[in-house]
Design a protein around this nucleic acid. Structure first.
Lengths: 115, 115
DNA sequence: TATATTGCTACGTTTTTAGTAGCAAGAAAA
DNA sequence: TTTTCTTGCTACTAAAAACGTAGCAATATA
């Protein structure tokens, strides 16, 4: 396994981001986690560490290019890191997941109503 | 003001969606709210109803085409509706916002650490 | 030494968003 | 009643992001 630490264009607090020109923290966060696969990655790392290929499969055979871009961004954002046995949530990453998790149950009720 | 009820391609539970081929409820939700401006719209509607143009300004002068697409999707998803005085959150929309809201405070701490 | 597995990069295609222009319908002003 | 504004969009082109496939270097395994 090779190691890369390149920093991708991370949404900057105070500066305009995708989806918002205000640069408010919440909008910076929404920009980041709103990108495709971001939340799915956090979700899949919540129960155990996963390798690149493992994540690829679990994320619907996601494009390696996009997946890698997301991984770099999430690392730059301090939400995940590259552990011995694959990618893992950082403390911050877990905190974020904890706040995202309740959406899981809610989503189940919601899709039920949609029919 | 004209009225439109056209149904856009909404992520379908059980079927593959953007960002996930599993079709799990949480992934369907992530697909929907992960699209650009979605979460920002919910955020901006949380304190009061807003007209199309009003939302446009608050969403960083968002493209009317994209904004309108998002509004249609969120309406089809039963999260917002077109009230007399502009767009408004439905009951479900408010529930979702309530679960999203804690991210606001967390985001402030998070961006602080990033420096 | 041969075979897998892992973590990517490259690149052409498709999808999504951005950005600008403008129009129809209703309200307000003249 | 005619003008002027505001509102809620649609249309269109350009740019950016994501998809999808191929493949390669490095390490692990047989």
């Amino acid at each position: 396994m090779t190691e890369k630490t390149e920093t991708p264009k991370l949404p900057q607090p105070g500066a305009p981001v995708r989806g918002s020109k205000s640069g408010q923290p919440i909008m910076v966060l929404f920009d980041l986690i709103g990108r495709r696969w971001s939340m799915g990655i956090l979700w899949n790392l919540s129960d155990e560490n996963r390798t690149f290929r493992d994540l690829q499969e679990r994320c619907g055979s996601a494009s390696p290019s996009v997946l890698n871009t997301r991984l770099k961004e999430l690392r730059a954002a301090g939400l995940i890191y590259n552990a011995e046995d694959g990618y893992a949530l950082t403390e911050d990453g877990r905190q974020l997941f904890d706040k995202l998790e309740p959406l899981g149950d809610w989503a189940m009720d919601w899709v039920e109503k949609l029919r």
